[in-house]
């Protein structure tokens, strides 16, 4: 299940959905939050812009690729857009598999591809009230090398 939304999400509810099937032996979840410091700036909040249509399409493609690589029993991917304040939840990836190794790997794979392929852009606002676009990190691109 893939969702792009402005509303917050409830981890417990997402986790409960992931573990519904009795064949599930492992659930790995990742949650990304708005951090107070980024690239040397004191962050007060951020706005997430996206490309409606392409976002959903690219997330679906990333999940499909993960499903072709690992035996995934259930997968939930949620990404929020719009204005977010400090410590708010941005992204959730939950993977249910029979065994833990597949769940750890698939979760990391989905985040690595999301960071470089899904059309989201962060505009941060610092403690002085100045807004600026966040630069992409080269380390996010090189993170893909381990999957090739």
């Amino acid at each position: 299940m893939i969702r792009v939304q402005t509303e917050d999400f409830n981890q417990q509810r997402e986790y409960d959905c992931l573990r519904e099937q009795s064949s599930v032996g492992a659930v790995v979840t990742f949650t990304g939050l708005v951090r107070d410091m980024n690239q040397g700036e004191q962050v007060a909040g951020l706005t997430l812009e996206h490309y409606p249509g392409m976002t959903e399409k690219s997330l679906a493609q990333i999940v499909l690729q993960a499903k072709q690589r690992w035996n995934i029993l259930a997968c939930t991917l949620i990404h929020r857009v719009g204005e977010l304040t400090l410590s708010e939840q941005i992204v959730f990836v939950g993977i249910a598999t029979a065994h833990r190794k597949d769940a750890f790997a698939a979760c990391e794979y989905i985040m690595d591809y999301l960071k470089t392929q899904a059309p989201f852009w962060k505009k941060e606002c610092n403690s002085q009230g100045i807004s600026y676009w966040v630069d992409a990190r080269e380390s996010d691109n090189s993170a893909l090398d381990k999957w090739s």
Partner: peptide, 9 residues
């Protein structure tokens, strides 16, 4: 569509 490198997640 033209855009800068993506920065989601």
């Amino acid at each position: 569509a033209f855009f800068p490198p993506v920065t989601g997640g």
